[in-house]
Write a protein that binds this DNA or RNA. Structure first.
Lengths: 337, 337
DNA sequence: TTGAAAGCGGTACCAA
DNA sequence: TTGGTACCGCTTTCAA
């Protein structure tokens, strides 16, 4: 079947050790032996068995990534950025999806730990930090992305979600909205932080809105086009109707957009809309969507950097938090003037 | 560090072999020993070292996936479907992106072979089947998805792209378009097949169109919003202007849509538009986009089935081709009546 | 500069 | 039902 070091060694009348040294470019090998071995390796299309190597070195050169949903552009971009950066350093990425289900996530993490991945990168759907405490015990380094836990000092790459909520909501206020609503996300740090930012932006400006302007997802629901649509329908049934809506993400914003237009209202004149994420198709939507850019790909790249530095540092370094700057991209959905 | 079989064995005064047997639910173990071992494993949060197991069994329980671009909804869905189905069977997925670059793809494949993945799933950006002939020599089973090679008998899951082109173009003709253009894709089977379908649909109906109605991407360009936009600009400069455009994928269609609207023309009255892929956001676009659905997630699921059956069959079975049925989803961009 | 021996954490095989 | 031994493919250590 596959060619092994042993095969090459036998053919060339060398020992396995010598061939192994050539493979790893070990210094004390004669130039001649080296070229002979390398040539034969090339001829035979030799590939070292990484599982065997991992067993002895303890390094698998695999990084595990767990995201809630690979189909969302945000997570796809994070995965891409991460994958590209890690590949340059010889690492491969095992990607798993938790489907926003804490139990699935736990299974995936267990599976990855079983693979002895060199590190984990997780955008967690968990409500508590419990599983990460377990990972800590296993000594496997990990980096949280996008979502974090207040109660857990850990490596993190993402944004300050309160700033993000502040930015989106503040923008709506700045363009003249006075009755600003928020379709909030799940009870993870992003959902909580953005809602807090929303509240603070209103508070800072002395804008008082009824409690019903903050629409919460039903238990177990995802922040999707469908739930955004439904949430917006609720908002449209209120009196007075909000004149601006800050949405947890772009999917909910798209659903909201649909509901607003169906109701015969105009965007942005009657209701202005802001999403979060800023997908590449934002400007091709029915009403080009203003969105808070989350520099998704960069999150992946920075996570890769952090992962590599953590793996490199033998001892356990102090957890590092990398906060990237959100950037508002204004489009028609909030261009009131 | 990590708990090993040996540790548990020593603690319980058993041999490693016995503990290993419990782990794999081997029949001839006394109930008592079994519970004792299982309990201790749970307590210690024991996880078998899959690299070690792989070394002796020759099975890594890893499947490699290589796609041109994980951010495209089509490939993200394929990856999701594949991942979900494989996970149920205890497999993990290593996902790599080739960025539509044949050379990168080759590197990724080499890397994955080095990991001794149990099988490969590839949506290839290659122009020739050469690398797959090399994989065949390595005895690693593989399944092509989306794109294939005429010259290579191989496992494949995807669609008959000529039918797909026929469907999209035929639909435009059916709604009354007479001057139908095509923005074609790259020189891989999907691009070639869809263009062939386009030609055949026109031929079948005796519709003759100038050669310039078939717009080709420049060398090395990707089928993106940008190139779709540029291609459409070219088409708009022709006399007469086409009254229907069948696009290679949804990204090019979105770019084309932008160009048409900017030119002050109406969709679908002046120019009708059909894309391929049918992303979830199709109905939220400026003009809801008619698109040929590629049942992306199903492609992933079927690929998983095929992979599992190929791995299961010890001998090398005859390559199997699974062709899924494209389905036209009509929306406003082609609703002429 | 080269290689013999030991071992990484499991599993397979066969004997006790 | 249990366990001793060999071994998977590679690296590490140390001696020749």
């Amino acid at each position: 079947m596959a060619v092994r070091l042993k095969d090459i060694a036998r053919e060339l009348g060398l020992s396995v050790v010598t061939v192994s040294k050539v493979l790893r470019d070990h210094p004390d090998i004669s130039a001649e032996t080296k070229t002979r071995v390398l040539q034969r390796m090339k001829e035979l299309d030799y590939r070292p068995n990484l599982a065997a190597r991992a067993l002895v070195t303890g390094k698998t050169y695999i990084i595990g990534l767990v995201v809630p949903d690979l189909v969302q552009p945000f997570f796809a971009l994070v995965a891409s950025g991460l994958s590209r950066s890690l590949r340059k350093n010889g690492y491969n990425l095992v990607i798993s999806s938790s489907e926003e289900n804490p139990e699935f996530e736990q299974n995936e993490i267990d599976q990855l730990l079983s693979r002895h991945v060199d590190a984990l990168v997780v955008a967690s759907a968990q409500r508590t930090d419990e599983s990460f405490r377990r990972i800590e015990e296993q000594q496997t380094p990990f980096v949280l992305v996008d979502r974090r836990f207040d109660s857990l000092q850990a490596n993190f790459v993402g944004m300050d979600d309160e700033v993000l909520g502040l930015l989106g909501t503040g923008h709506l206020a700045d363009v003249g909205c006075r009755r600003i609503a928020h379709i909030r996300g799940p009870m993870v740090s992003t959902g909580i932080g953005r809602a807090a930012g929303y509240r603070r932006a209103l508070g800072d400006r002395g804008l008082h809105t009824p409690e019903e302007y903050l629409v919460t997802l039903n238990q177990g629901e995802e922040a999707s086009e469908k739930t955004g649509y439904e949430a917006m329908r609720k908002l449209l049934s209120l009196t007075p109707v909000p004149d601006g809506v800050f949405c947890y993400n772009d999917s909910t914003a798209m659903g909201a957009m649909q509901a607003i237009l169906e109701a015969g209202l105009r965007i942005p004149q009657d209701v202005s809309l802001v999403g979060c994420g800023n997908p590449h198709y934002a400007e091709f939507l029915k009403v080009p969507l203003t969105s808070v850019d989350q520099v998704s790909e960069q999150i992946g790249e920075r996570a890769a950097e952090l992962v590599l530095s953590v793996i490199g540092a033998k001892g356990l370094a102090k957890p590092k938090s990398v906060l990237l700057e959100p950037r508002l991209v204004v489009r028609e959905s909030s261009r009131r003037i």
